[in-house]
Simulated assay, not measured.
Amino acid sequence: MSQRRPRPPGDEPAGDGAGGVPDDVAAAMERVLSTTALLWSRAEQGLEPAVSPIQLRAVEAISRSGRLNLGGLAEELGAIPSSTSRLCDRLEAAGLIVREPARADRREIIVRLSEQGERLHAQLVRRRREVVRDVLALMSPASRARLLDALTEFGQACERRAPGGAGAVDSRTA
């Protein structure tokens, strides 16, 4: 990917987006995120046990929270509770999660990762970090330092944009 060169003042391209962000910046970010998603998808292939993308998203959500009730998991996934319940049926059958009644209200069901689910998540994290390290190794130390600063600020902006974490998801089925 080519480096973005500073433009002289007043020489921004037409089509500036929200907040005065030039289209070329947004397009560059979209390309990087798209390529990163592809790299991550490749890192997910061959996981044992094999899981679908939505199952992997559920494992990640549960791992982030430690324990979630079905409603909380549905919200994290942007799915309806009945679909989330069926998803949990499949995850439980695969040995990746454990369902248990909540201590305060035994009608409420809590899900957590099983030991096998934790191993799967750890394997995923290792693979993803390996892919990222391979790409970062192609960059200069100075570029990596600038990237870290930019990603830190971008992450903070994402958190301000999507309070509560997950943000909007188009699909409501799990």
Score class of each variant (00 low, 15 high):
Leu120Ser: 03
Ala79Pro: 12
Leu39Pro: 02
Ser85Asp: 09
Glu48Pro: 00
Gly19Trp: 03
Ala145Thr: 15
Ser41Arg: 08
Gly17Lys: 04
Glu108Cys: 11
Val25Tyr: 10
Asp105Tyr: 10
Val131Asn: 05
Leu68Gln: 09
Leu124Glu: 03
Ala102Ser: 15
Val59Gln: 01
Asp16Ser: 04
Thr36Gln: 12
Val135Asp: 06
Gly66Ser: 12
Gly164Tyr: 09
Ala58Gln: 03
Ala174Lys: 04
Val98Thr: 10
Leu124Pro: 00
Ala74Val: 05
Leu87Gln: 07
Arg106Met: 11
Arg7Ala: 10
Leu33Val: 15
Ala162Gly: 00
Ala27Phe: 05
Ser2Phe: 07
Pro13Val: 00
Glu76Gly: 08
Arg126Leu: 15
Arg7Gly: 02
Asp170Ser: 09
Pro141Lys: 12
Leu96His: 02
Arg106Leu: 14
Ala104Pro: 01
Arg126Tyr: 09
Asp24Met: 00
Ala104Met: 12
Ala18Trp: 09
Ala58Leu: 05
Met1Lys: 06
Ala26Met: 03
Ser114Leu: 08
Glu130Met: 12
Pro53Met: 08
Thr84Ser: 12
Gly46Gln: 06
Ala18Leu: 11
Cys158Arg: 10
Arg144Pro: 03
Leu138Phe: 08
Val51Met: 08
Arg4Thr: 14
Ser140Asp: 12
Leu96Ala: 01
Leu136Gly: 05
Asp149Ile: 11
Ala150Tyr: 14
Gln156Lys: 06
Pro163Lys: 06
Glu130Tyr: 12
Asp89Ser: 14
His121Val: 03
Ala50His: 06
Val132Pro: 01
Gly95Ile: 04
Pro22Ala: 07
Gly167Gln: 01
Arg5Met: 12
Arg107Ala: 15
Pro141Leu: 10
Arg99Phe: 04
Gly66His: 13
Asp16Met: 05
Gln116Trp: 00
Gly155Pro: 01
Pro9Trp: 10
Val21Ala: 05
Glu30Leu: 15
Gly66Gln: 14
Val51Gly: 01
Arg112Asn: 03
Pro6Ile: 02
Gly10Ile: 14
Arg42His: 05
Ser140Gly: 14
